[in-house]
Amino acid sequence: MTEQWEKQQREVDSYNVFFSAFKGRTEGDSLYNYDYRLAGMFVEIPDPRNDVDVEPDFALFNGSTLLLAEIKSGTNINQRDIRQMEAAEELSIEAAIEWLRDAEPEAAGYDPNGLTNIESAIVYYRDFIEECRDLSNCSEALEEVSEHCTVLSQKKGGDLRAEEENIDDSELRDLLLDGISVPKLVDKMVYLTENVNREILAYAIVHDAVLNSIGKDDELAIHPDEIVERFRHRKISRSKLNDAMAFLRQMDACVKISEEYVFRKSNMANIMSVGDQLEEFRVREFLAQEEAQEGQRTLTGYSEAAETDSDD
């Protein structure tokens, strides 16, 4: 398995493990059971008066407390983490109420004006936190970030729990000190990484965009604009999208017909094997190889100029 695919899976999992602790299961505690509902994911909460923009991955609201969670899957605590959490600390109740109005929590029976408390948290994987505590630089950074927010750790097949807590809401504090158990394997609510790597994008196109839409038809034609629209909670560059699509074509998961990409049920075995291929290949390396081979073929053949992609 490529290192990059492993990293991308780890990041996607990190969102979904947290999501699992939120949505809960039939039994056991969850944030859902404590009346938290999803006010938004990948949100942008502007606070012009304090001159901050807060962009947590999850904003959960229970009618009075807004829990903002920033999910990390990396293996260091960097300055960006600390700056993000400083900004979250600055966020005023007024600005949060303003944002909540757009989120329309009334449908769940919550009044934005009910907001009285903001809790912000950063979430790391447990294995990283354990390593971090043994390293002096890292544990200093951990201490620094914990001055601005609560630090949570999560572990698949373990729990989500508080490592360093600054929680005002006593109910939430008790819950997170006890920990919320999470399964070893989590289902996918989130498909993309923050940077929308080409590999995970190819995966999300297949499993989220195509297979949820193809239905009983024999084929699905999809325009790149529709992909951008569908994943508009993430910034997708056209060059990455083109690469992901080119990869899917090379894998015979789809064919390109004028501006559209056509996925056919008769190719379902290829479509479903994209995940396996992504374990083995990086999209750009694979395309470069294909291009080189294509170049050789054309040199010996018609000596046409090979098309080159000028992006990154």
């Binding site: 006010a39 994911m41 909460i45 944002w99 757009d102 989120a103």
Partner: peptide, 8 residues
């Protein structure tokens, strides 16, 4: 999707 984020 809404102005300030995404929901599920």
């Amino acid at each position: 999707f809404f102005e300030g984020g995404t929901k599920i």
